[in-house]
Simulated assay, not measured.
Amino acid sequence: MRFFSVACIAALSASNFVSAGSWFGTDDVTVNEAKKVPGDSPLQFCDTDHAKDTVHIEKVDLLPNPPESGAKLIIHATGTVFEPIEKGAYVKLTVKYGLIRLISTTADLCDQVENVDLKCPIEKGVLSITKAVDIPKEVPPGTYNVFADVYNSDDTPITCLEASVTFGSKRKSTDASESVVDL
């Protein structure tokens, strides 16, 4: 469930939620610049109208970006909450590995935000979250696609985020000439 918790945190962190960080990997990050969440992360806004979102995501940074398997990932997200986020808020989360659906679930958002020391209701105002998570070194190579659609208890949209990250060969610089070695 750590993966799910990190996904929820990402979506709320940015909204304030980062995205399934414990699955994000080493090499390629695909980002459409027009939909990109501000900051240094693979997060993008979904193809929906965000004018009525309960949370405005101002910035999400991941360190390192892209995340690396077997390393600690630090997530820093800031945003503004326009309406309180109440008990009963929920997230619809889908995670795919290539074309294979790994997770497709709806979960209680308030249970998940406790992982970043927040509790519902989350009141109006500026929200800033920093969270460190360990990414398992056993993450299989491949592309992971995450979709998190988040709603308040009255079904008003909080935010909708997606990300795509490819785990693959890790690149390391071996000398000043910037040689690249595929492991």
Rank of each mutant, 00 (worst) to 15 (best):
F3Y: 14
F4A: 08
S5L: 12
V6P: 12
A7L: 13
A7Q: 04
A7R: 04
C8E: 07
A11S: 09
L12H: 00
L12A: 06
S13E: 11
S13Y: 11
A14Q: 09
A14S: 12
S15F: 11
F17D: 14
V18R: 08
S19F: 09
A20Q: 09
S22K: 13
D28T: 14
D28E: 10
T30L: 10
V31Y: 05
V31H: 07
N32T: 05
N32V: 09
A34C: 04
A34M: 06
K36F: 03
V37L: 13
L43P: 06
L43R: 01
D47G: 08
T48K: 02
T48Q: 01
H50W: 05
A51E: 12
T54I: 14
T54L: 13
T54R: 02
V55G: 05
E58W: 11
E58P: 04
E58T: 11
K59T: 09
K59F: 06
D61I: 01
L62G: 01
L62P: 05
N65I: 03
N65T: 05
P66S: 04
P66C: 05
P67K: 07
S69H: 14
G70F: 08
A71Y: 14
K72P: 02
L73F: 10
L73E: 10
I74Y: 11
A77G: 15
T80H: 00
E83T: 11
E83M: 06
I85N: 00
G88T: 02
Y90Q: 01
Y90G: 01
Y90I: 00
Y90K: 13
V91W: 03
V95W: 14
V95F: 11
K96Y: 07
Y97C: 02
Y97M: 12
L99P: 09
I100L: 12
R101E: 15
R101K: 14
R101G: 08
R101I: 12
R101C: 11
I103C: 10
S104P: 10
T105S: 12
T105M: 07
T106E: 15
A107W: 06
D111P: 04
Q112L: 08
L118I: 07
C120N: 07
C120A: 00
P121Y: 06
E123T: 10
K124M: 10
V126S: 14
V126I: 11
V126R: 12
L127H: 07
S128Y: 01
I129K: 06
I129V: 15
T130C: 00
T130Q: 15
T130H: 06
A132H: 04
A132W: 06
D134Y: 11
K137M: 00
V139F: 03
V139D: 02
V139P: 08
P140H: 04
P140G: 10
P141W: 10
P141I: 08
T143L: 13
N145D: 13
V146G: 02
V146P: 00
F147N: 05
F147P: 00
A148S: 13
V150N: 04
Y151V: 04
D154P: 04
D155M: 05
D155A: 06
D155S: 01
P157Q: 09
L161A: 01
L161F: 03
A163D: 08
V165T: 15
F167L: 15
G168R: 05
G168Q: 00
K170H: 09
K170D: 14
K172Q: 10
E178S: 13
V181C: 02
